[in-house]
Every structure is written in structure tokens, then in C-alpha cells.
Design a protein around this nucleic acid. Structure first.
Lengths: 184, 184
DNA sequence: CAAAATATGTCAACATGGCTGACATAAATT
DNA sequence: AATTTATGTCAGCCATGTTGACATATTTTG
């Protein structure tokens, strides 16, 4: 049942049979065990989809993330990518170098600021990025198909609300900007 | 469902291996870029919450996952934990040993089958597990608070639908069983 | 203009947490 | 008695994260 409660007391309910579970409540608030665990399993399966394909290229999830965001944000600065991925430039450098050497990403000198190395996916890089996104989209669409209409909107609202308040605006702007950039 | 997400079509040619995309009768389905990226950012923030606490114990996310599931499933077998985590016993062994040595988890010989080493969180282990779950629950409840009533149910349905069909039943059973087990 | 700040790259070393393969032990099953 | 199962362990490799130090080119600033 929907039990988003008032005050500090939150009750988790069991999956499946709808049995309410009275909480142990040491601190007065029940942990949202169901969401915590569903998120774990859902995310595990979600990121697992592309693994098989990545294996054929001898790439890992780190490469996937880099390629994904570069493809989605053509001409992005290295610094922006670092911000999104939340890793150090040394960590990024390792996988980025491989993606560049193998022709999935190219760098162009910035026009206004020639210190910048703007990142672009090559056609080859775009193809791989799309292939991986297609796999994940398949899962997402299957889920939305099982649920009723409005599921997409509900999922988007939920996931957005789960993001840090500080980042949320930036993330939404980034997604909107990327959508525009890829329409052209 | 058609606002942010429009633009790049996924087509068989772009995918390259001829994989059919469900619902792509007229030459392509939009990749669900928004959900893909929101899931990435939401999960990143979600698993990041406990990191600070874990640092104080010199533990990582691997320890967190092990402690979490052991606490939620008192008396579970090592083999079951391996199934849930999808890692090798050698990988598990490393972190499990530390959790045992430092008194967060204990093992008891199985009663019917004395080869088994059933896993239990100690009071100390349970306390840490709850502390970490409370952090994540805080984020979840904040999100549900921002969204209307029904958000919990909607999120649960979405996340459930995102899980592999094969595992889904098992996951739901596991969550339900754990909920009962923790009611003592 | 000289100095400082910025964007990026690189080298070296180290930590975490995956993996494979081989082998060991005790207990249950056949 | 032989085999299978549940678990543990040693050894080494790999991917990907970290810190710290330093280099280079370019832009910004006093």
C-alpha cells in the first residue's frame, strides 16, 4: 500500500502480499528496505546489459560512461566530463586515451580558448554508444510496457527527486541541453 | 511521455548487429536517454551517502553490501550471499573475513548441515547496517516527500519492472522474507 | 609585459575489489 | 568407499579508483 507517512515514522511494507510490516524502529524511523534493495538489483541488471558488448571491444564500464557522456555532449570540455563522472583526471586519462587511440573519440582544440581539448564521439564512437544505449532502452521500455501509461513520467520524477538537490538543476540542464544537441 | 526525450533514433543500422528494438516499426525508437542518465546520477548519489561513514571504519562499498544482506537475512548461507552479490567466493572471502575479524558478522555451523557457515550480523554489525540504511532512507523519504502520495508504490513498481524477469521472483521473495525475518 | 591562474596531460605509486586457477578440508550423499 | 557439496585459502592478474608531483600551453591579471 502507499504509505508515505506523516512525521518521522515511516513504515515499510512487504512486497508482493501487501502485508504491512511493523517496524523495529530504534530511532523512530523505519529504513526503506524495499527501495534500497530494489534499487540495488535494478541497477545491477541495468548496467549489466552492456557488459557483453563491451567485452568484445575489451572495454569496461568506465569506457562506457565516458563514451556515453561525450556522445551526448559533443564538444564538451575535459573538465566538464570530470565533474560529471566525479573521478580524477588521472583515472579519466587512462580510459580516455584508449578511446581516442582506438578511434571512438576525437579531441579538438577549443576555438575561443585554445587550452581546451573539446571531446567528440566519432561516427564509430557514436555507433557504439547508441548500441549500448539501445540495450538499456530495451529494458526500460519493457518495464514501461509492463506498467501503465504515466510510468515514464513517474520514473523520471522519482529518479530526479533522488538526486542531490545541489546537482539536480545541473543534471536536468545537462540532459535537456544534450537532447537539443543531438537533435540538430 | 514526449517532451525531454526526443531526437536520436536507434536504428538497426546504427546498432549494427541487427538487433530488433521492440516498437521500432518505422525505423527507430528513441533511446531513453533521460532515464538512463537520471538512473546514473540517482544511483551515484544514493550509494555515495554511506561512503563517509564507511570511511571511518576503513570499509568500502563491498563491505556495505555484505553487511547489508547478512543483516537482512540472518542465518543465510555463504552460497546464498554469493548468488545475491554475483561475485566469486574469493572476492567475498576478502571482505567477509574483515567483517568477521572486526566483530560485525559471526558465523555459526549449520544444524542440519554442518558444512554450512550461516551468517549473522552481531549487534555491532546490525547497528552499522541500520546506520547506513538510515542515511539512504533519508534520501528516499525526502524524495517521496517531494513527490505526492503514491510515489513509494510507483517507485517500487518501476524498480521491480527493471529487474531481470528471471531474478524478479527471487528478489521479491527475498525482500519479503527478509522483512518477515527482521520483525522478530 | 611579467606573473599568476587555468586547462590539460603525464609519471609513479598505491588501494580496492573484481577475476581465474589450484588446492584443502570437512561433511553429506550416493 | 567413493563422490559430491559447502566452504576456505593461496597466489596472481586486471580494471579502475586514489594521491602527489610536475610539465606545457594558453589565458587572465596586476
Amino acid at each position: 500500500m502507499a504509505d508515505i507517512n506523516s512525521g518521522t515514522k515511516i513504515s515499510a511494507s512487504a512486497i508482493g502480499d501487501g502485508t504491512a510490516v511493523p517496524g523495529a524502529a530504534e530511532g523512530g524511523t523505519d529504513a526503506a528496505w524495499d527501495i534500497i534493495e530494489l534499487l540495488f538489483f535494478a541497477y545491477r541488471d541495468f548496467v549489466g546489459d552492456p557488459d557483453e558488448v563491451l567485452l568484445k571491444y575489451a572495454f569496461g564500464r568506465a569506457h562506457h560512461r565516458v563514451l556515453h557522456f561525450v556522445n551526448r555532449n559533443p564538444g564538451m570540455k575535459v573538465a566538464d566530463l570530470l565533474d560529471i563522472l566525479n573521478i580524477t583526471k588521472q583515472s579519466l586519462g587512462r580510459v580516455l586515451k584508449q578511446l581516442i587511440d582506438q578511434g571512438f573519440i576525437v579531441q579538438k582544440e577549443g576555438e575561443q580558448d585554445r587550452r581546451q581539448r573539446l571531446l567528440y564521439a566519432t561516427p564509430k564512437g557514436e555507433a557504439l554508444s547508441l548500441k549500448l544505449a539501445a540495450l538499456q532502452t530495451e529494458r526500460i521500455n519493457r518495464a514501461f510496457g509492463e506498467l501503465g501509461p504515466g510510468a515514464h513520467e513517474a520514473a523520471r520524477r522519482f529518479l530526479t527527486a533522488m538526486i542531490d538537490g545541489d546537482n539536480r538543476e545541473g543534471v536536468l540542464r545537462q540532459i535537456a541541453r544534450a537532447d537539443r544537441a543531438k537533435v540538430r
